[in-house]
Amino acid sequence: MKIMSFNLRVNVESDGGNAWPNRIQEAAEAIKQANATVIGTQEGTYSMLQELHAQLPGYSWLGISRTGEQDGEYCAIFYRHDLVEPLESGHFGLSEKPEQLGYMSWNTACPRMCTWVKLRETSGQEWILYNTHLDHISSEARTNGIRLIVDRMKQSSAVGGSIPAVLTGDFNCEPDSDVIACLNDELGLINAYSTLTRVGRTFHDFKGGEAGEPIDYIWATPNVSFTAVHIDRNTYNGRYPSDHYPVAAELALK
């Protein structure tokens, strides 16, 4: 299974030449080059996701916006429909009222959410993928949001069961944060970056470079291992596909 986490960067006119309409093909090319089976995306709006999907005929996608309506940003999940099929899917808000999308708690700057899907490969093997985008302002919202995701993963067959699970997302925090400690200590998840000797930054503001720390992550339950991890710092047609580098990982069952 090859998984990607990819913050698409919402369409902002002030980005000028880096605004979404100018890099749709580049974003699609990054996904094609990774040959990812499943991609957890962040910051895509409905129109952006439809435009990206038009460039990726081998993929389908699912999700809902963080407001519960069509408008707003999604934590959409793309998947290769020839390799996997969705069995169940859903979403919950990262707030004190998780069943009510659009509700805000913990001094969050905007509504936050998690989208999940249970997939079955053609071999019959099942996986569960969780995809999220934590708040960029409130550390309280990030910590409580990840604890909510941890609780939901514990309630599912993703933890302590035989079904492998993966968590992707833009966590808006560096490796020394409470969020990362929670994933290590409370769930015992495996960080994809544990296989790398050097990671570097994943948010680059369309400037490139490696100096710094990551804020985009891929985690997996202990019943799988990471066989390869790649942070894609390439340009396509001379342009970065986003202000975040896509992160891809290959996983194998233990």
Rank of each mutant, 00 (worst) to 15 (best):
W116Q: 05
G212R: 10
R112W: 09
K154I: 07
A28L: 09
W127A: 11
S5E: 01
Y245M: 10
A19I: 03
N172R: 04
K254L: 12
N131Y: 01
E140Y: 02
Y103I: 01
V229L: 07
N107S: 15
L87H: 03
C75R: 00
E126A: 15
L183M: 12
D216Q: 13
G208C: 10
G102L: 08
G16R: 09
Y74G: 04
P222V: 08
R9T: 08
T132V: 05
E186V: 03
E186I: 01
G200M: 08
I3M: 14
T227R: 14
G160Q: 11
S14K: 14
R233C: 07
L251V: 10
I149R: 01
T202Q: 03
P57R: 10
C75D: 08
T235V: 14
E73A: 05
P214K: 04
C75H: 00
A249G: 07
H136M: 03
E140L: 12
W61S: 00
N191S: 10
W219S: 08
S65H: 00
A141C: 09
D15S: 10
L148I: 04
Y236C: 12
P164V: 10
L251M: 13
A158T: 06
L183G: 05
A228D: 15
L52R: 02
H136Q: 04
E213K: 15
A28M: 07
G63V: 02
Y236H: 07
